[in-house]
Design a protein around this nucleic acid. Structure first.
Length: 984
RNA sequence: GCCCAGAUGGUGGAAUUGGUAGACACGAGGGACUUAAAAUCCCUUGACCAUUGCGGUCGUACGGGUUCGAGUCCCGUUCCGGGCACCA
């Protein structure tokens, strides 16, 4: 009897062995080069792990194991992003503490992960919801509160070492205010909410509250009154990336705009560095592009506009300074404070009515509905270049939050201005030669400028100079206008970013509490040595009756300043005891610096020790989904840059290389219920009608409409429903009538969708592990296709991988079940197969092309099996090569070969070219690019020799007959082509 | 609308980066071994024509181009996916 591949026994044995020997424990070792592999840690949801989760974990585990075999000291940790909305929603429904359900889910995840054979060092596990972890989340927040961004406003440090803006202690700014107020501050590029102006005397005369308010304008974590995305159903504010198409990302509830006092992070301060950093990291172009869009840098010009007959002026922002001659009106955002100032008494009523209309519209309405609306303010602005008086309008198409909230409108060259001008019948002046603006605007930045000015007297002189752009290209015209505006102090060159500050507070329970108390209304940091401030117990997870966030339900939630401890709320006296912040931090707080914590997860003294941070530096390979492009991957980069400024993180960028694994989708199955009945009709009996307007199909059976209902995929094989099984599933099907087709089968319809509990299409990895083993699962998930690609889960091909492992296994055993490997000398063919494999697998792993390396294994095993290879010289190398992909079988065979240590500590085989060198190469001989016959060439033949041999070969004669050779192309090892034409 | 990525057999996907397209796997068909099944092994499998002559023609979404030679490079079109979306 041949020895059977008993994967259950093997995998259980090695799992226990790894745990017992702490095979995957990793410690800092100055003598070895480090390599840091990381996966985006999961949110432990109630549905458990599905087959999509391990895709990324397997991919990074393969790389981690490979790097280890190459001699690197590899850090490959795992943990849980444990704070989150679902656990809290569940808690509200059932009254169970979210910590309890979260920990239950974590245990389930761990159990599932353990089955797949990852090389995680579980001693480094982190959970974002444990106090020893979130202590450092709170600590980082406090540091941001105590920092501003810019150059040091300290005259002695101007120059060397003070060229790059970065985070600095807020004390430096306070010292400056005490001496000079805001005078000369703009030289230091300090990030701020709005441009303030005050003197040192004013600053020194202000009380603590006023000074605190002013400092909020500069702090990197600050409390600000801002427009927020408020979601009434979730009872909380959301960050921009948590809102998709005007509804909440989680749950899909409507979101409205609301002005609220909130904690914010001044992410925008780092806009330029976030943009520049993208050039230094190996991420996919599409993610970098997405981040570039999100940051939205635009370089333009700010120009001062005087309002005619009023003592008011305002600033507009434009990227098309060249079009100043085509301005025919100005537009203010409805929310702009200028609206009130410029509106004339005659227009007051109309303007008020318009503002009222705008306020009544939700963000979603404004996003979907782009009809032209607006109102004339009654005032006129003076174009500083032409001297023309142009009407000032108020319209919602201008956004308050971007630029200055005011624009100059050039209808000829901006489609939005064009639509507005057509609607209000305003003049349109074309400025580009050949541009036809009778039907639409000409927005392209290409062409030659004209009408700028129309006539010499239409250009205002400044210091004897007037602007003339005629005949210039648009690019030249922009540069020239910038120069002109700057030279004559009409405005300034300005860079704007679309990236907004992140709203950092949530009105929820299950999140990190803020280490902040309110001392006479002033937000004050709880001393660093008192951290962490632990999440208090509450009896209800809903907001209080007075509308306070859930933490308002906590009774022991006040800060005793004198004794430095948390005390009962009833003791608040506003002298020694003050209320603590009721908001909690958002999901991205805990996930922004977790990769640093893995380096040193148990450290009580620091987020990460100097020693650990210096050794591990940053993540070399990060694997995760691309859906985090504008969320986690921006916040993390921001957070890391801040910690880098503090010297905590050692690299400016946290994730050197990023691989985005695709999503594994599920096949959802639908049965069709006739409306208002309990009858289900087989899909092939239904008539389909497609509704063009709704982009959706509707189904009918004998005139009655049938509605799709999800059926659990375990009830379906192929597209045939197991009627008995579904009857047992839920009561609604028990007594249902199933109308079958003529073959007596019930056919379901199927669709590819995201895997989700509610769609009943989740495939668990557990069943695969049970039936085929973890090694097959690992191999199969990688064999499915490139990691980056999304694809539906389909078990159809899994047998192929299972068969391969069985073949691989049987290379090692004879028919009696004894080890077949012996000391015989490997043949040239054996060595060639082996080294072909080493070369292919090594280069494929480096390129994350795991599917092709598995193919290479299949080929090699088939070849060796055909060669009846028994030689240990070859067979002892294979377990090492397969170890990253299928670690259990690798260990088993490695041990069977007589090794005493884990295959993890083996050495990755070296590729040797000499085994691949051929004495001859078979190449196709082409005439005029078409292959005509194949022949052998000596491997070391020169191009001339190859041509000589090809043309004199007997096969060549019939092609050469009556022809003459025009040209020859020969590349050794590659190609021989002879260009011929009929003889003249 | 703008930006990015992509389209290869019945299916998932390969292709040394411009050099014999379809590796590897699934599925399908045929065969061997078996009382039978499972397992295993062998053959065929892009299309069409020719098949007791070993071959020929076409073929990488579509239309052009560059080249001795294009799945790969360039121009245009269609379709699918992702991101941004009144950002001035």
């Amino acid at each position: 009897m041949a020895k059977e591949y008993n994967f259950r026994e093997i995998e259980q044995k090695w799992h226990q062995n790894w745990v017992a020997n702490k095979t995957y424990k990793v410690v800092e070792d100055e003598n070895r080069k480090k390599f840091y592999v990381l996966n985006m840690f999961p949110y432990p949801s109630g549905a458990g792990l599905h087959v999509g989760h391990p895709l990324g974990y397997i991919a990074s585990d393969i790389y981690a194991r490979y790097k280890r075999l190459q001699g690197f000291n590899v850090l490959n940790p795992m943990g849980y992003d444990a704070y989150g909305l679902p656990a809290e929603q569940y808690a509200i429904k059932t009254g169970q503490h979210p910590e309890k359900t979260t920990f239950q889910n974590i245990d389930r995840y761990r159990e599932q992960l353990d089955k797949i054979g990852f090389s995680f060092d579980w001693d480094r596990e982190v959970r974002t919801c444990t106090p020893d972890y979130y202590k450092w989340t709170q600590w980082a927040f406090q540091k941001m509160f105590k920092s501003f961004y810019g150059l040091t406003p300290n005259p002695s440090s101007v120059g060397e070492g003070n060229q790059q803006p970065k985070a600095h202690p807020i004390e430096e700014l306070i010292a400056y205010f005490e001496k000079k107020g805001t005078e000369g501050l703009d030289a230091y590029n300090i990030a701020q909410g709005e441009e303030l102006s005050f003197t040192a005397e004013e600053w020194n005369s202000w009380d603590e509250k006023k000074q605190s308010d002013v400092l909020m304008n500069y702090r990197l974590a600050f409390m600000g009154e801002t427009m927020v995305n408020w979601c009434p159903q979730l009872g909380t504010v959301l960050a921009n990336d948590e809102v998709v198409n005007g509804v909440s990302e989680r749950g899909g509830y409507p979101v409205e705009q609301k002005k609220m006092r909130q904690w914010c992070l001044r992410v925008s301060a780092y806009s330029q560095r976030l943009l520049d950093g993208l050039e230094t990291i190996q991420w996919s172009e599409s993610i970098k592009e997405t981040q570039k869009n999100w940051i939205g840098r635009s370089e333009g010009t700010e120009v001062q506009i005087k309002v005619a007959d009023q003592d008011v002026d305002f600033t507009i922002f434009t990227t098309r300074a060249d079009t100043m001659f085509g301005v025919t009106f100005f537009v203010l955002a409805p929310e702009s404070e200028l609206v009130d100032k410029v509106t004339t008494p005659e227009q007051r009523a109309a303007v008020d009515e318009y503002i009222k209309y705008v306020k009544g519209r939700t963000e979603r309405e404004r996003m979907i509905d782009h009809t032209v609306t607006g109102v004339f303010s009654g005032a006129y602005g003076i174009n500083p270049i032409t001297g023309d008086k142009c009407p000032i309008y108020i319209a919602e198409y201008v956004l308050a939050g971007y630029g200055t909230g005011a624009i100059m409108a050039v209808p000829a060259h901006d489609s939005r201005d064009y639509a507005f001008a057509k609607h209000f019948d305003l003049p349109i002046i074309p400025l580009v030669e050949g541009a036809d603006v009778s039907k639409e605007s000409y927005d392209a930045k290409e062409g030659i400028v004209m009408n700028s000015p129309v006539s010499p007297d239409k250009s205002v002189k400044y210091d004897g100079e007037s602007l003339n752009l005629n005949g210039k290209t648009i690019k030249e015209a922009i540069a020239e206008t910038k120069r002109f505006v700057k030279a004559h102090k009409l405005g300034r060159v300005k860079v704007n970013y679309r990236l907004r500050d992140a709203i950092f507070s949530r009105q929820r329970y299950w999140g990190e509490p803020f280490p902040v108390y309110y001392k006479k209304g002033i937000p004050t940091m709880i001393p660093e040595e008192c951290l962490p401030i632990e999440l208090p117990q509450v009896d209800k997870f809903l907001p209080t009756e007075t509308g306070e966030p859930p933490l308002g339900n906590a009774t022991k939630w006040a800060w005793d300043e004198k004794n430095k401890k948390i005390v009962e709320k009833s003791l608040i006296d506003e002298v020694n005891v003050f209320p603590i912040e009721l908001y909690t931090m958002p999901g991205f707080a805990g996930s922004s610096a977790y990769y640093l914590r893995y380096m040193d997860p148990k450290d009580d003294e620091a987020l990460v020790s100097e020693k650990a941070a210096s050794y591990w530096q940053n993540v070399d390979l990060y694997v995760g989904g691309s859906e985090h492009a504008t969320g986690h991957l921006i916040y993390s980069r921001f957070w890391n840059k801040f910690l880098f400024d503090l010297g905590v993180s050692k690299k400016d960028e946290p994730f050197q290389k990023l691989i985005n694994q695709g999503m594994i989708q599920g096949w959802s199955s639908f049965v069709y219920r006739l409306r208002n009945t309990n009858k289900f009709v087989s899909f092939d009996l239904l008539d389909e009608q497609y509704d063009e307007a709704k982009k959706k199909s509707f189904y009918y059976y004998q005139g009655a409409e049938a509605d799709p209902v999800y059926a659990d995929i375990s009830m379906v094989s192929g597209n045939i429903l197991n009627v008995e099984k579904i009857r047992e599933w839920t009561p609604e099907f028990r007594d249902a009538e199933f109308i079958l087709n003529q073959n007596g089968q019930y056919i379901v319809s199927q669709a590819i969708e995201k895997m989700s509990k509610s769609k009943y299409n989740v495939v668990n990895p557990d069943d695969i592990c049970e039936n085929y083993g973890a090694d097959t699962l690992r191999l199969y998930e990688m064999f499915l296709g490139p990691i980056e690609q999304s694809k539906p889960w389909d078990v159809a091909g899994i047998d192929g991988c299972f068969r391969f492992l069985k073949k691989f296994w049987s290379l090692y055993w004879d028919k009696d079940g004894n080890l077949a490997a012996d000391d015989s000398k490997a043949t040239a063919d054996n060595m060639k197969t082996l080294h072909k494999l080493i070369k292919k697998v090594t280069s494929d792993i480096e390129e994350f092309s795991y599917n092709t390396s598995i193919s290479a294994f299949m080929v090699a095993v088939n070849e060796l099996s055909g060669q009846k290879c028994r030689s240990k010289q070859v067979l002892s190398q294979l377990p090492v090569l397969i170890a990253p992909f299928a670690p259990h079988i690798a260990e088993e065979l490695w041990e069977a070969l007589g090794n005493k240590t884990s295959v993890c500590d083996a050495k990755w085989p070296e590729f040797d070219e000499k085994f691949l060198v051929e004495s001859s190469v078979k190449l196709g001989v082409q005439f005029n690019g078409k292959v005509r016959f194949a022949m052998d060439f000596p491997a070391d033949a020169t191009p001339d020799q190859m041509v000589q041999m090809a043309t004199s070969a007997p096969d060549a004669q019939k092609y050469l007959d009556g022809m003459q050779i025009v040209k020859t192309i020969a590349i050794p090892g590659r190609i021989v082509n002879i260009v011929i034409k009929p003889q003249a």
